[in-house]
């Protein structure tokens, strides 16, 4: 890294830490908005709260292009297979935020057509409470996720560790 006086210095880091640093600051959200929470998600990316300040403003509706799925709203049994398919289409590494009470646990809809939390279907990294959560709460959730990515604590990282253990434990 060049310095003002013409000399240069070298920063050393681990590959994992650098990857985490890069990944956490360029999250591309996929808003899977179904209900009321989607309106608050819109507020979060609009000018007033400006999610761009945290490097997560490139909203992409295509699962192929995004790495952070924000499930905002109630997921019903009819919608379940769609969530699963969209999640499966995302490329690794991918992260999931469950925004709001419905996505976390079904909320106050303990009913015949409502999924009692999206973790019935897909792994969730961060649960954001609220009905609906304020934009501040969602931004807090994203900051939490960034911290988890940096420290290698996401579901994606856990899966990788499990895989490594499984391969090393193979006989022969």
């Amino acid at each position: 890294m060049p310095q003002p006086d013409g000399s240069s210095i070298v920063l050393t880091t681990r590959v994992q830490a650098m990857l985490g640093w890069v990944r956490k600051n360029s999250l591309w959200p996929l808003p899977f908005g179904t209900g009321c929470c989607a309106v608050e998600f819109n507020s979060s990316v609009s000018s007033h709260y400006d999610l761009a300040r945290f490097g997560a403003e490139v909203v992409r509706f295509s699962p192929r292009q995004s790495d952070m799925m924000i499930v905002a709203g109630t997921i019903t049994d009819k919608m379940g297979p769609v969530v699963k398919r969209v999640y499966d289409q995302m490329a690794e590494p991918k992260y999931v935020i469950a925004m709001g009470a419905c996505a976390c646990s079904g909320g106050f809809y303990r009913a015949y057509h409502v999924m009692q939390g999206i973790d019935e279907l897909i792994p969730v990294d961060v649960y954001v409470a609220g009905c609906p959560p304020t934009p501040e709460a969602l931004i807090h959730g994203i900051l939490e996720l960034q911290e988890m990515i940096q420290r290698g604590k996401t579901h994606h990282d856990r899966l990788k560790t499990q895989d490594r253990k499984a391969t090393t434990a193979l006989p022969g």
Binding site: G73, T76, K78, Y109, V114
Partner: peptide, 11 residues
């Protein structure tokens, strides 16, 4: 439709 049928009337 019905992808957001949250059973309001039953609840």
């Amino acid at each position: 439709i019905g992808y957001l049928h949250r059973c309001f009337e039953k609840m």
